[in-house]
């Protein structure tokens, strides 16, 4: 694989289509600067700022961009809010579309064929494998991402967190809770 990647890079640099320094900068960005912390910031702001939450519901792309997180592929964002009665789960059945700007690059299981097929056919068994058992009367909505539209799950704010500030709340927001394969952590547990 290494030789083939180098061959492509040699061709693309030779044609002036790719700048090696830009390649290094992109790798550094995704290895160190983007990740689920960005999404946790968005969720914690939605929990603490009703005006922001309302904006996130109506125009997630703009609300998320206002915090400095913009997609590089020109994709639109949609925020889906968990409630007592509805739990949201995100998948990309086609390939691996994922909200990079707020969650970084997807975990291995998200890109795997079992997750891509089972999340749609039998989401409850997928959640069970993640250790997440939902009440039988909670409905599960599965959102299939595309190249143009990516989803961010806004998990429910854990109970007993009224006196926490946005920064402390963000620490409770896990990556999986923003994909829908988990819940936000309870306060006091780390």
């Amino acid at each position: 694989m290494t030789a083939r990647v180098r061959a492509l890079e040699t061709i693309l640099v030779g044609k002036g289509l790719v700048d090696p320094a830009a390649i290094d900068a992109i790798v550094e960005t995704y290895e160190t600067k983007t990740g689920p912390r960005n999404g946790a910031h968005v969720v914690a702001k939605a929990w603490t700022d009703p005006g922001f939450a309302a904006w996130l519901k109506t125009d997630a792309t703009a609300a998320i961009a206002s915090l400095g997180y913009t997609g590089r592929q020109g994709e639109h964002m949609r925020a889906v809010f968990n409630t007592e009665s509805v739990h949201n789960l995100v998948v990309c059945t086609l390939c691996s579309c994922y909200p990079w700007s707020v969650l970084g690059l997807p975990p291995v299981w998200y890109k795997s064929p079992p997750y891509r097929s089972r999340a749609v056919m039998d989401p409850r068994s997928v959640l069970a494998e993640f250790g997440l058992g939902l009440p039988a009367d909670t409905s599960i909505r599965v959102w299939d991402s595309t190249a143009e539209l990516r989803y961010l799950v806004i998990p429910q704010r854990p109970v007993g967190t009224d006196d926490l500030d946005a920064e402390a709340l963000a620490a409770l927001v896990t990556r999986d809770s923003m994909i829908g394969t988990g819940l936000a952590r309870s306060a006091g547990k780390s």
Binding site: M1, T2, R4, V5, R6, L8, E9, L12, L17, V18, D19, A22, I23, D24, I26, V27, Y30, E31, R72, Q73, L105
Partner: peptide
């Protein structure tokens, strides 16, 4: 090589 392949796609797009 995975990082390089990934970044080339982002750069070309």
């Amino acid at each position: 090589w995975q990082a390089e392949a990934f970044a080339m796609v982002v750069a070309l797009h």
